[in-house]
Amino acid sequence: MSKGNNWDYQLEPSELSRIIEMAWEDRTPFEAIKTLYGMDEQAVISLMRRQLKPSSFKLWRQRVSGRVTKHERLREPAVSRAYCPTQYKR
C-alpha cells in the first residue's frame, strides 16, 4: 500500500501516534525514529506536515529547527541514548 514517501498509509495508528510523540520530544533524535521506523528526518517532517494543523506544524518546526538534541551528530558524546528506559513505549 506504499504511496512514495507517504508513510501515513503504511503505519498502524499506534505507530503513527508514537512517531508524532517522538518527534515532539526534545531529547529524541531523528536518528532514533529512523532506527525504529525507517523514516529519515525529511519523511518525519512530511508526516508531521500532513498530520498536524498548520499552526501546530509551524510551532513544531520552530521548536526542532537547530535543536542540538534532535540530531545525534550535534549532541555531546556523553549522551549515549535517546530515551529513558522507563519511558520507552514500543
Rank of each mutant, 00 (worst) to 15 (best):
P77H: 06
V64C: 09
E76P: 01
G38P: 01
D8V: 03
W7F: 03
R27H: 15
I20C: 06
W24F: 14
D40Y: 13
P29T: 14
P54G: 08
A23D: 05
P29E: 14
M22R: 10
L74C: 13
E25F: 02
E21G: 06
T28W: 12
S17E: 07
S14F: 04
R90S: 05
P77C: 04
C84M: 10
A82W: 15
G4W: 07
R73H: 12
Q87K: 13
E41G: 03
T69Q: 13
V44G: 07
P85Y: 06
Q10G: 01
M1S: 04
L11T: 00
R61Y: 09
Y9G: 09
V44H: 05
D8Y: 02
W24V: 02
N6G: 00
R73G: 08
Q10H: 01
H71V: 10
E76A: 06
Q62Y: 08
S17L: 01
M1K: 01
A23F: 02
Y9C: 04
S14W: 07
E25Y: 03
L52Y: 08
F30C: 13
T28V: 15
H71Y: 15
R73N: 09
M48I: 04
V64F: 08
Y83W: 14
H71K: 10
K89I: 10
V79F: 10
Q62A: 13
V44C: 10
K3W: 05
E25C: 09
L74W: 14
F57I: 03
L16F: 00
K53T: 07
I33V: 15
C84D: 13
R63N: 11
A43G: 10
A23E: 05
A82F: 14
P13K: 05
E12D: 08
R81D: 11
S46A: 11
R18V: 02
P85M: 05
L52M: 15
P54F: 11
L11K: 00
Q42I: 07
Y37L: 02
V68S: 06
T69D: 11
E15P: 00
I33A: 12
S14E: 08
E31Q: 15
W7C: 02
S2Q: 06
H71R: 12
W60G: 05
Q42P: 02
Y37R: 03
T35D: 14
R50E: 03
I45R: 15
T86K: 12
L47N: 00
N5W: 00
D26E: 15
K53Q: 09
E25M: 13
L16I: 01
R67K: 12
Q10F: 00
L59W: 06
S14A: 09
K3Y: 10
R75P: 08
A78Y: 10
K53M: 08
R18A: 03
E15N: 06
R27Y: 15
E12F: 05
T28D: 08
P77M: 04
D26N: 14
R73W: 10
A23M: 04
E12G: 00
Y83R: 09
E72H: 04
Y37M: 02
